[in-house]
Design a protein around this nucleic acid. Structure first.
Lengths: 103, 103
DNA sequence: GCCTTCCATCAACTTATTTTGATATATCAA
DNA sequence: TTGATATATCAAAATAAGTTGATGGAAGGC
């Protein structure tokens, strides 16, 4: 185990966010729930691409989905972003605790 | 430009952090400045691997180096972590501003 | 039932990233 | 100068991630 808790989860979230298209999706979802077709249009991306990236984001816990009729709506899981913030906080604190690395 | 400023920089930092070995390096450096040989020993990793990952971290602005004799010391750039925190803050705020996506 | 729409998934391919092992450079010590 | 140590870099191989185009399933309208 590292100095900071939740490393593995944090890493998955970091990796999921570190991709341009996924970040666009996240930003789009930050303004509200959307179905795949909304995202396709908004980001003008092929459907299979969207689905691929949605899956990565979902597996990282950054979004959740809900089906309604033929549509599947995706929604940002703000909690995941907050957890990442918490993790980052721990890391910077750890650094500041050990004086030498922060002048 | 997206909803949130500094996306490109943030993405590079996210990507750099989203790698197990690099995260180990970052955590190790969070307790203070280290030379490559220290890191090699601590993480028990081949030298060329360490150097490779240090380069990625350096290019992302997460660490800086300083040479002293034969040794090169690497140090965490806490500022970069803080900038990432700021970026994340913007993102979550943006989400919370638009009520619908945050219950 | 039949057709259409929305979406997931899959296999083949392309591209990007990481690892490996070797070589090169710089510094120091003898 | 010779030799050792610390580190960077590089090309080739290995692995991982993303894209493409096609297929298939589920839901709904007719």
């Amino acid at each position: 185990m590292g100095l900071v808790a939740g490393q593995t989860e944090a890493r998955e979230v970091l990796k999921a966010l570190a991709e341009p298209l996924r970040l666009q999706i996240i930003e789009s979802l930050s303004t509200g729930e959307k179905c795949v077709c909304d995202l396709m249009e908004e980001i003008s991306l092929a459907q299979s691409k969207i689905s691929f990236h949605l899956k990565v984001l979902k597996e990282a816990g950054l979004i959740t989905d809900r089906q309604s009729g033929r549509w599947v709506y995706y929604k940002l899981e703000v909690r995941a972003l907050m957890d990442l913030q918490g993790w980052l906080n721990q890391l910077t604190k750890e650094c500041q605790r050990t004086s030498s690395s922060c002048e």
